[in-house]
């Protein structure tokens, strides 16, 4: 084996490990507790290659206002779906989209883009 081949092989193996660690690693996204007001709660979510924050803590029984700000045009994030709440909304690029829902029981409720690649979670407590 030539030197370049040995080098490329090692770089390749290192890349494989890096990719695995980076994408399959544990920590994903940030968590936030929704801003509480009397009789409502609110959270702003930036959509840019993912949801930020991607984990949102909500209080049960309080109407929640989720404001999605989408800062990109890729078709990957042009829809957001809350399957448990029966909500599917288009998110226009470079604009705000408000989603209103009232969590009626406690638990984890996932939300995702139209193709389920970008994911987030509502934790109702």
């Amino acid at each position: 084996m030539e030197t370049t081949q040995v080098v490329v092989t090692f770089i390749g193996i290192a890349l494989l490990v890096l990719i695995a660690m980076f994408f399959f690693g544990s920590s994903k996204g940030s968590a936030m507790v929704a801003q509480q007001y009397t009789g409502s709660q609110e959270q702003r979510i930036v959509v840019k290659g993912g949801y930020n924050p991607s984990v949102i803590h909500l209080k049960v029984g309080v109407p929640a206002k989720l404001i999605f700000e989408r800062h990109e045009t890729t078709s990957c994030s042009d829809q957001v779906v809350f399957p448990d709440f029966g909500i599917r909304k288009n998110l226009p690029a470079h604009a705000e989209t408000i989603i209103e829902l009232t969590p009626t029981h406690k638990g984890d409720f996932e939300f995702a883009c139209g193709m389920n690649m970008l994911r987030g979670k509502l934790i109702v407590e």
């Binding site: 920590s27 994903k28 290659g49 990957c76 994030s77 970008l118 994911r119």
Partner: peptide, 12 residues
Amino acid sequence: SAWHSTMNRIAT
């Protein structure tokens, strides 16, 4: 888009 999602440790 790839850059932003990589920042979130997501690959699309």
